[in-house]
Design a protein around this nucleic acid. Structure first.
Lengths: 220, 220
DNA sequence: GGATGTGAACAATTTCACAGCC
DNA sequence: GGCTGTGAAATTGTTCACATCC
């Protein structure tokens, strides 16, 4: 399939074709009128815009279950990320290979960051160690941090932090699950608070429906 | 602190106080004019609305590094989730305790779901096994699935799926990291494509800035 | 003829601003 | 006097519809 139309892409993504065209237009005029978008060229342009064509060395600090899972995660390489080093505070871990990469000790953190030109760090330590690790990463030159530890990190201006809370997604599912049950009950007759719950549900559903893969149809 | 004003909450959250009040109003009138919101009462009402006051038994299927990390994750219990069972296809895992819970074999999946009244399942298997596990969960009565496997799952109507891609957050950081570098270059003089990149960045930043914890100030 | 790119129309969301209540 | 709750205004985002170009 050498070319694709906005109509086809929109149907696949579950969005309006005009929205898709308008969004693409912010990146530039990469389509051909009467023909559509050249698939290979479009993929390249979007990849470039998203930074997928660059090589991003990252370090993972805290090689417990989660750190090991991240080190083994296949999705990184295909998106331009390269695990430059694994770092753990436990001396017993030092030298052990995880996902084929030897774990290094926290003592060498600064040197590792500088030698590899790392600007993105992943924190998968226990909560208690996270802020300290964060401070050292920042001092060593890291300017973007992905935080899996259940703590809010304090960072100076110019440093970006994103926090991943694995339970939030579950909570969203539970919210909709609760709503499914509520709808059934509401169908039987008036229920105190049902209107308020429905309003809240409507709002939350509009923010992000539960269906990540299904075309954008709002749950009734 | 027995009560709190919308102004204080808004400042803490980095949003407009009117928005906060309007959002709260969808849940009902839980504030007192001239006083503010009773903290304990407000927490309870929001918890109830989000389903945090319910007990949600969940099963985790696939007890590799990620599954084990999830089983050990502290955030679940405090949000109303209870890990009812851990399930793995490897017979060697059966009976071994992970996070204090003995792993059970996939053969018993249906029985486990039914005995525990589970409606939410977590899939942390390799990609190849995910769809099959998903089908069995759904057939056994699960209606919400959190998918960590890098596959798109097909489910019948009425089943909610949320997919967690651990590399997407990294990608967002890399996008902003790239932009930081681009801004510097752009400051030196006109750069081909800089306008388009800036437009795209502006749009993406509006969708969700990189600063999860900082008050809602858009990156310049 | 067919599909893009984009002003204009429309829809949704956010903020203002103030009446109403404690 | 102070703060909530909410119509109305302002802003932002989405969809329509069509001029434009291949």
């Amino acid at each position: 399939m050498p070319t694709v139309s906005s109509e086809e892409l929109a149907a696949a993504a579950g969005v309006n074709s005009a929205k898709l065209r308008k969004d693409f237009s912010y990146l530039g005029s990469y389509g051909t009128r009467g023909v559509g978008y050249d698939v290979e060229y479009l993929v390249y342009q979007i990849s470039r815009e998203l930074g997928l064509t660059q090589d991003w060395p990252v370090v993972i600090v805290g090689i417990g279950n989660l750190g090991a899972a991240l080190a083994n995660y296949g999705g990184f390489a295909s998106r331009g990320f390269r695990v430059a080093a694994l770092i753990d505070a436990d001396p017993a871990m030092a030298g052990k290979p995880v996902a084929g990469i030897p774990v290094q000790h926290t003592d060498d953190l600064e040197k590792i960051i500088q030698d590899n030109g790392v600007s993105i760090g992943v924190i998968a330590t226990p909560a208690g160690a996270a802020q300290q690790v964060c401070d050292r990463l920042v001092a060593a030159g890291v300017t973007s941090i992905l935080n899996f530890a259940p703590t809010v990190l304090n960072v100076p201006d110019g440093v970006d932090v994103r926090k991943v809370d694995l339970s939030i997604e579950l909570q969203i599912l539970a919210f909709h699950e609760q709503r499914k049950a509520g709808e059934e009950a509401a169908a039987d007759g008036a229920l105190p608070g049902a209107a308020a719950a429905a309003a809240a549900a409507r709002k939350a559903a509009a923010d992000q429906g539960p269906d990540g893969d299904v075309p954008a149809v709002m749950p009734a």
